[in-house]
């Protein structure tokens, strides 16, 4: 389970960043008092425009960055107090995180498996299962730099799942993928859900959120403006689809500001 209590993340901007953001305020609040709970056996989607704070939230959960305020519990472990325990439980993947280009998919899979201290036999079985599912077997011996974007993303997903984590955190899981690869990724996320895993993703693609997410948290300007199942969101906003609902909420937020 992931439990976020009152998460706030403030970045300090340097002069160059202030100039780029056209602001005189040296502090930028990326996430503002955000709370949510995601449970095993569900796909939770953080939906929002670019810069809404989705990625920052996921990075705080995965211990890459520290919350300025608030607490995050992952399977009962607090991210700042027990970061290594948290990292044992999660598989984190984003387009920004890449695998060493000069190593083969095989090597990277085994390397990360061993970092997670997975017994050799289990690691071999996981490799067989994941490589077969993602169709990686044929190019497993190839170096990462020799793979196409889609193949690379598939390999990265397989590597990040090597240790069979209970919680899978995907930042924009289908970003930059062709339709076929994107479909195999979303299908796999559904498979993980049926296995009882907790999957939390961030996305700005409405159709993706509609199709795969059990619950959706809509984030605008660092705030969680609404949360619920698709039908609940549509009902509450009086909209016909998620895109309309999102724009309704966006309009309201902008109006408030």
């Amino acid at each position: 389970m992931i439990e976020i209590r009152d998460l706030t993340k403030v970045y300090k901007l340097n002069k160059k960043q202030m100039k780029e953001s056209r602001t005189t305020n040296p502090r930028k609040t990326a996430v503002d008092h955000l709370s949510l709970t995601a449970r095993p056996g569900e796909i939770y989607g953080l939906l929002g425009p670019n810069g809404a704070g989705k990625t920052t939230t996921l990075r705080c959960i995965s211990t890459i960055i520290r919350p300025t305020q608030g607490e995050i519990y992952v399977s009962g472990h607090e991210v700042q107090k027990e970061p290594e325990k948290v990292r044992e439980k999660i598989g984190f993947l984003t387009g920004d995180i890449k695998l060493d280009p000069q190593f083969s998919v095989d090597y990277m899979f085994e390397f990360f498996g061993r970092l997670h201290q997975i017994p050799e036999e289990k690691l071999r079985a996981r490799k067989e299962e994941l490589f077969t599912y993602f169709g990686i077997k044929d190019f497993a011996h190839k170096k990462m730099k020799e793979l196409s974007t889609g193949m690379g993303q598939k390999a990265a997903i397989a590597v990040c799942l090597a240790h069979d984590p209970d919680i899978i955190i995907f930042d924009e899981p289908t970003n930059g993928l062709d339709v076929i690869t994107a479909r195999s990724v979303t299908d796999y996320l559904k498979k993980l859900r049926t296995e009882g895993k907790l999957v939390i993703i961030s996305t700005h693609i409405m159709s993706e959120a509609e199709k795969i997410c059990d619950r959706i948290g809509i984030v605008i300007g660092g705030h969680k403006v609404m949360e619920g199942r698709l039908d609940e969101i549509l009902q509450e906003t009086g909209s016909e689809d998620l895109e309309d609902a999102f724009f309704e909420l966006y309009r309201q937020t902008q109006g408030e500001e």
Binding site: T63, K85, R87, E88, D96, K98, L99, F112, L115
Partner: peptide, 8 residues
């Protein structure tokens, strides 16, 4: 970053 999210 991939090393930083590993449990070591």
């Amino acid at each position: 970053a991939s090393l930083l999210v590993s449990p070591i």
